[in-house]
């Protein structure tokens, strides 16, 4: 298993959230295998990519963290995670994190990866299922809520 294919996304998330929001993410040092289904913590965003291999990144946040991210970046006082601006901000964070990680992977491993636009969603009792792909998660904690980075590559972990 090339752990770097997974860890690079967690590193990008930590660096970019620190740089853009001044927010430290504690933890996110280990990778845990997820079952086929993942329960959303509140607001989730997925970016998929394709090149020499295919995969996807899921960024999952507790509602308190999603609101903090939107309020801090936009200078507003949103209190509803269904607000279009809150969802768009989480989506854009995922876009920046994925762009950073994918650029590094392309430069280092010539994977020719191209990103689809991010999707973002929230709702009740949300479960995300990614068929036939094993995924690994890193968990982090901040002063404003938890975050999970989940990475999956088609064709296993090699």
């Amino acid at each position: 298993m090339d752990i770097n294919l997974y860890q690079i996304f967690g590193t990008s998330a930590k660096d970019i959230i620190k740089e853009m929001l001044g927010l430290d993410i504690r933890g996110m040092d280990t990778l845990e295998q997820e079952p086929g289904e993942i329960s959303s913590m509140g607001v989730s965003s997925i970016i998929t990519f394709a090149g020499t291999r295919k995969g996807r990144l899921l960024v999952d946040m507790e509602p308190s963290l999603a609101l903090y991210v939107a309020n801090t970046l936009l200078g507003e006082e949103y209190d509803d995670i269904k607000d279009r601006m809150v969802l768009s901000t989480v989506s854009e964070i995922n876009n920046i994190v994925s762009g950073d990680a994918i650029t590094k992977l392309n430069n280092k491993l010539s994977m020719g990866l191209r990103l689809a636009p991010p999707i973002v969603f929230t709702g009740q009792d949300v479960i995300i299922s990614i068929p036939k792909i094993t995924s690994l998660s890193s968990w982090g904690d901040t002063d404003h809520g938890k975050i999970r980075i989940n990475v999956a590559w088609e064709g296993g972990n090699n």
């Binding site: 998929t48 989506s91 999707i119 969603f121 709702g123 009740q124 009792d125 949300v126 995300i128 792909i133």
Partner: peptide
Amino acid sequence: VTPPSIIFGKDMYFIIST
């Protein structure tokens, strides 16, 4: 084409494009 994601839930709000 990139890998499919299947999402289950009630009263869902999505943004899939900028």
